[in-house]
Design a protein around this nucleic acid. Structure first.
Lengths: 207, 207
DNA sequence: TATCATACATACTGGTTGGTATGGAAGCAC
DNA sequence: GTGCTTCCATACCAACCAGTATGTATGATA
């Protein structure tokens, strides 16, 4: 157990700085549009540090997916959905927490951005990104299933198909809003998705 | 009125060859990933021809959007929806016509691919792509509205919000399927979207 | 404190690629 | 058939950028 102060040399700290700077740059220039030197300048380190921690640009990109993007998905979706009583309330809560600032709308979804750009070009990217999508959908699926058990979700819907539909629609709205550069598109999407989710609640027993 | 035979020099023919070759290349390498020389080789012309017809790579990309992608959207969505009696039947028909071959699934949607890659980086791309999305949604919206008049669509739904939801979900599924490289994802999406569309029909008058 | 692996910094290189300069052949005007 | 414009080919250039080679400072270890 070593205490992490901030000596002039701190490997894990440097690695994190690189990852964060690279994520930012990739987020709004794409992976191919990102210049290593720009990333290095933003991270405040030099090329030697980068190639010490990573094998190259591709490896850095893969690490972004595994460390940064996976964590974002985990924090925003999986954690709040874990073992929750009413998944519909939880999902609506997450929807409402979705940022609709100009920067976020114009930037789109980091996960989907990278997936659309790199999936056809690099299997290393695709597999890692695909796994995150799978985990995401799995999380929603499990929550819906538990909700069915708890009587909070209609039993006549298929949890996996419904979860996939929800995720697809959510990502689709973010993509549309990004292209339109219009937050109203995203807010409309959130409203509509809420309506959709409400429709998943069990009908009131008219007995 | 001039007859178009095929002399060794034919400007419009050359331009089309360039556009088609560029579209193919961009479709499966992305715009930035596309090499001009590769496009030229595929088109069977040289750089002189390209720079005679277009100002540069960007202009060629813009022309792809305006000519090729706009036409695809027009043919697949707008034409079949134009002035149709029952938009739900029409939309389901279009859904069923969606290709689910490996190449198409892995390639994704040309419109959305370019939009996600280039919208944040080039306003010329973004505006042109955004316009196509707008036209697409407008077409669905108008069809739904007419369907309401014809009594084929529930009157308690908002045509524009519904059309946007439909397009977003459709694109979202295509994106998911592309990343997963799994046609089943897309086919599941088509099924779910059909269910969604069926739900837009007016309830049966129980009188 | 001598040693050595770790953790960086600096300078350079080579390939890729969009773009340009130049020339020439085809076709229309007259 | 001469001149001019359109259309296209060829050769070359310059910038950008990932990657490398090399050097050096740090700090753990013994």
């Amino acid at each position: 157990m070593e205490a992490h102060s901030s000596p002039r040399r701190n490997a894990s700290h440097t690695r994190e700085r690189l990852l964060n700077a690279a994520f930012e740059e990739v987020y709004h220039s794409g992976f191919r549009g990102s210049d290593l030197n720009t990333i290095l300048a933003k991270a405040g380190v030099t090329k030697g540090a980068l190639y010490h921690h990573f094998d190259g640009k591709d490896a850095l990109g893969h690490a972004i997916v595994e460390n940064v993007i996976a964590k974002i998905t985990q924090d925003k979706w999986l954690a709040p959905l874990d073992d929750v009583d009413d998944p519909i309330d939880a999902l609506i809560g997450i929807l409402d927490s979705t940022g609709t600032s100009e920067a976020e709308v114009n930037g789109g979804c980091p996960l989907n951005n990278l997936a659309q750009e790199m999936s056809p070009l690099d299997e290393g990217f695709r597999l890692r990104l695909s796994e995150i999508f799978t985990n995401w959908i799995d999380g929603v699926t499990d929550a819906l299933r538990l909700g069915q058990v708890n009587g909070k979700v209609r039993r006549d819907i298929d949890p996996r198909e419904t979860a996939t539909f929800f995720v697809a629609s959510y990502e689709g709205y973010i993509s549309l809003a990004k292209t339109a550069q219009d937050a109203r598109v995203l807010r409309s999407g959130i409203r509509q998705l809420r309506v959709y989710l409400e429709g998943l609640r069990p009908p009131i027993k008219t007995a």
